[in-house]
Design a protein around this nucleic acid. Sequence first.
DNA 1: ACCTGAACACCGTTCAAGT
DNA 2: ACCTGAACACCGTTCAAGT
Lengths: 263, 263
Amino acid sequence: MTSPRARRSPRRTEALSRERIVEAAVGLLDAAGEGGLTFRALTERLATGPGAIYWHVANKGELLGAATEAVVAAAVATGPQRTGRAGGTEGAEGAEESGGAAEAAREGIRCVALGLFDAIEEHPWLAPQLAGQLSRNPGGPVAPRIFENIGRQVRALGVPGDSWFTATSALVHYVLGAAGQNAANTASGRALGPDADRAGFLDAVSTAWEGLDAEDYPFTRAVADQVREHDDREQFLAGIDLVLAGITALHLPAGRPGGSPEA
Amino acid sequence: MTSPRARRSPRRTEALSRERIVEAAVGLLDAAGEGGLTFRALTERLATGPGAIYWHVANKGELLGAATEAVVAAAVATGPQRTGRAGGTEGAEGAEESGGAAEAAREGIRCVALGLFDAIEEHPWLAPQLAGQLSRNPGGPVAPRIFENIGRQVRALGVPGDSWFTATSALVHYVLGAAGQNAANTASGRALGPDADRAGFLDAVSTAWEGLDAEDYPFTRAVADQVREHDDREQFLAGIDLVLAGITALHLPAGRPGGSPEA
DNA sequence: ACCTGAACACCGTTCAAGT
DNA sequence: ACCTGAACACCGTTCAAGT
C-alpha cells in the first residue's frame, strides 16, 4: 500500500506459497499443539490476510493433512539413518547367509518404526491426526508411504505373498497405536510442568494405578511399578519384536530364516 | 407435561444431571461425529441454557472424556457376552487340561479386543479420543479399564510376571491402533455416500493404490487387491493372533501351554 | 494470478441474575 | 443448589475489491 519497501516485518516479501504455509503450520502445531493452528496466528506469522492463505489451501482440514504428510514423509525418509540403536545394518542388500537377510529386514522394520515413533513424539499433534483422519483421503500419500516402507521389509523377511497384507497391517497398526499412546503420554507430561518432564509423569500414573480399587483392578495394581520404571523406546521395540516373533511363528516357512537356533 | 405419569415427554422437566448430559453428548457424537458435539446443540437437546450444563460439567474436554469413559466401560463390560464368533469359552475357570486354560485366555483376549473394536466402529469419534487424549487424565478410569481386562487374560495365559507389562502393552497398542485405523476407514466410507457403504470404500482405496507410481510403491501396488477383498474383523483377529503367537514364542516357558502338540 | 481485510456465522465459556 | 440467557472473545470461511 504505502511503501512496498522496508517495513519492519522480518519477512515481508518472500512470496507466499503452499509450501511456506505448511511449514508455518507445522511450526504452530509444534509450538502450541492442535489448538495452536489458527488462521489468525497463521496470518500474523506470514504477514498476510486469511484470503491469501485460502488461495493456496482449500480449508483447515487440508492444511492439517498437508502438515501431516510433510512430517511423515520426512520421518520415513530419514528413518534408516537415525542415530539410535537401530542402525548399522547396511549389509542388508548383499547378505546371503542363512538368516542374514531376514535379520536385516527385522532391523529395517525397527528403523522405520522408530522413525515414526520419534516423529510422533516430536510432533504430538500427529497422533490423533494419523489415528482419526489418516484415511480421510485414501488416495493421499501418507498411508501408502508408511505401508510401503514397512511392507518391503516384510517381503524381505520371507513372508509369503498371501500373508503380506496381514503381516504388514499388524505391524502398522501396532506402530500407530503404540506411538499414538506414547505421544499422549508425553503431551500430558508436558502439561504437568516442564520440569517434571517424563519420570514425573510416569510416577504420577504409577501412583494413580497403585491407588486403584484392589478388587476391581488387581492386575493393573500389580503392574504399576513396571509402569514407573519402563523406558518408552525400549518398550516400543519390545512390542515390535513381539509382532515380529508372531510373524515368524505363523507366516514364515519352517526353515525359520530368523537366525535363531533350532529348538 | 407436568404429570409424573406422563410417559415419554421428550423434554420439559426430567431434572438435568451429569449422566443425562453425557448420554446426550454420546447421542450427538454418534449422530454427527466430533463436530456434532456443540454446547448449543446440547442445550437444544436438553432444553436448557449453557450455564446449566456448566454447572454439571467443567468444560467440553471433560464432557468428551466422560462420554469416552461411558462407551468404553459399556464395551468391555459386554464384551465377553457378545454374539460374535469369540464366545462359548465359559470353561476357563475350571479348565485344568494342559493348554485348556491358556486357550481360554486367548479367547478372552479376542473377546475384549472385539468388544473395543466394535465399540470404536459403532462410535468412530472414539478413535482419536483414545489415541490423542486417553491419558489426558492418567488417573482416569478408561486406560486402567482396558489394561486390566486384557492384562488378566495375559496372566491367565501363563506369561511370567516380569513380562506382564510388555505383553499387555503390546496387545493394547495393537488393539487401539487397529481399531482406530478401522474407524477412520468406516468414517470415510460413510462420507463417500451411504449406499457405497463399505465395499465401495475399500474398492476406492484399492483402486487408488493400484494407481500409485510403480517405481515408488511396488509393494503397496502388489497388495492392493488384498485390500479390496479383506474382511475387517477377520483381519483384526489375525493381527491379535499374530501378537499372541509372539507372546507365546518369546514370553511363555518352554512347556508351551498353548495346546499345540509338543514338537 | 495473487493478495487484502472487513464481515459473517458460529463456537466455548462466563456471569449477574433468577428460583 | 440449580438453572437462565445475554454477552464476550475467538474461530473458520467468504468475498468484493484491489494489484
